[in-house]
Design a protein around this nucleic acid. Structure first.
Lengths: 246, 246
DNA sequence: CGTTTTTTTGAGCAGGATCAAGCAGCGTGG
DNA sequence: CCACGCTGCTTGATCCTGCTCAAAAAAACG
């Protein structure tokens, strides 16, 4: 296996920085040829961002797009009077940016530690012009985000507080990489603190806390510490999340 | 003016069916050359659909995509136990379909009378392959839908019942063509009945009805008949819809 | 007209919000 | 080392918005 990887490095001409990058497999870079990857990688830079760093205005002023290498990014909307709603979450290897379109009014904020691989807008748009497949990948991500947004519209409009919380935990259990599987049980790490979960689900902190307690008492999950929990049985969790997503 | 239009018909070779079509101006067909429009128009067929007709499975079995020529289409999600949520509305000249991607699990249902201009999947995808600008238009529509979905996530998660109803009426007032402007007042026609508005806003029929009554008493609007209302002052309505959308 | 569907209005209830207190983790400084 | 403050989480008591149940009024339709 190792020899194969070494061979890749030499034969295919894939840049070292891209070698083990998830974005090259499942992300937008997967549409690029080795030569194009080389070209792009000349302008990429990796960066790490602490929780609660604003990534959107940072990227906008620098004129850069980015791939998420690791961590979770929350997309938030806030009104004048302080009400806040998280309208989406992004995971690796999602692409952040809107080529050929004006930006939206959501703010992208690091929720956990976030590692990014960023590159200038101009370089990416040039690659997009010559590589329709890459643009198509971005579109597919946009459509996936739209589908997810609509799933949450159902959740926010029609689910009870308990179902909402269970749905969120299910989302993390299925989206974020399965941290560990012990005895067929799943141990997950929540990328959001209670206040953020509340903002995501259209609830208050207190209600989120109470519902987690209820799910614990119903033995749907076990609380390890405030960010980690153990899911003994995904099917039971899925049932608690019930309507809509399955 | 009329002579110019006549000239268009003869000189530019735009098919007669496309002449006055909104989709050719603001919709996806705007990216096509006269020759391509000719090619596409050989396979298009127009159709009219009554309210509550399922458009999605119809289109899927026929293997066709479509442009909305007029009317309003509601995108709905329903759970096993009967709970329903409208996750989006589409107006002319929106494009309906997902080229190069698997379909989503939302149902597209005619809300009013809907006129469509449809064409085979294969013909459109062929045109898309040779016309990146057309694919880009579809993507821009998808991004616009995503932005709208996120606006509604905020509304569903963080707005009061009254704000939700006001926001919905504002959406119709700004999206659907201004039916008539009388004394700076706007007369609008709701494309949804009360039950659908409730399903759109995550409320019950009764609450929607009560909030419309409240808005009437607060002189934000006047009810003409159950589908039509008069908005004396858009700014007042916008204030009632308050947070989020501005 | 009578029948059905849709909308409005009323009365009572409850799920989740609000207000308030207590607790646990954690870094800081005495 | 512990007191202290700070932040985040949980739990309890009470309140209120929007839901449920019920009925009447108003349109739509044959």
């Amino acid at each position: 296996m190792e020899t194969i990887i070494r061979k890749d490095i030499h034969n295919s001409g894939i840049p070292a920085v891209c070698q083990s990058c998830e974005a090259r497999h499942k992300g937008v870079c997967g549409a690029l040829s080795p030569e194009q990857l080389q070209r792009l990688s000349k302008h990429t830079s990796k960066s790490v961002h602490e929780p609660n760093t604003d990534l959107s205005t940072e990227a906008a002023t620098a004129g850069r797009y980015a791939n998420i290498l690791s961590g979770v990014v929350k997309l938030t909307k806030m009104s004048r009077d302080g009400r806040q709603q998280i309208v989406g979450l992004q995971f690796a290897p999602d692409f952040m940016g809107r080529p050929f379109a004006q930006n939206t009014d959501v703010e992208a904020v690091a929720s956990t530690n976030v590692r990014l691989c960023s590159f200038p807008v101009s370089v990416l748009e040039e690659l997009l012009e010559e590589t329709p497949a890459m643009e198509r990948r971005i579109n597919q991500q946009t459509m996936a985000e739209l589908d997810e947004a609509r799933d949450w519209l159902f959740a926010l409009g029609r689910k009870s507080a308990q179902e909402k919380v269970a749905s969120f935990i299910l989302l993390i259990a299925t989206h974020a990489d399965p941290e560990r599987v012990v005895d067929q049980a799943l141990v997950i790490e929540l990328p959001l603190k209670r206040a953020d979960i509340a903002d995501f689900l259209g609830l208050t902190i207190e209600t989120v806390s109470r519902q987690i307690t209820n799910l614990r008492k119903a033995e749907v999950l076990e609380v390890i510490d405030r960010y980690r929990m153990r899911i003994p049985n995904l099917i039971v969790l899925r049932k608690a999340a019930s309507a809509g997503n399955g």
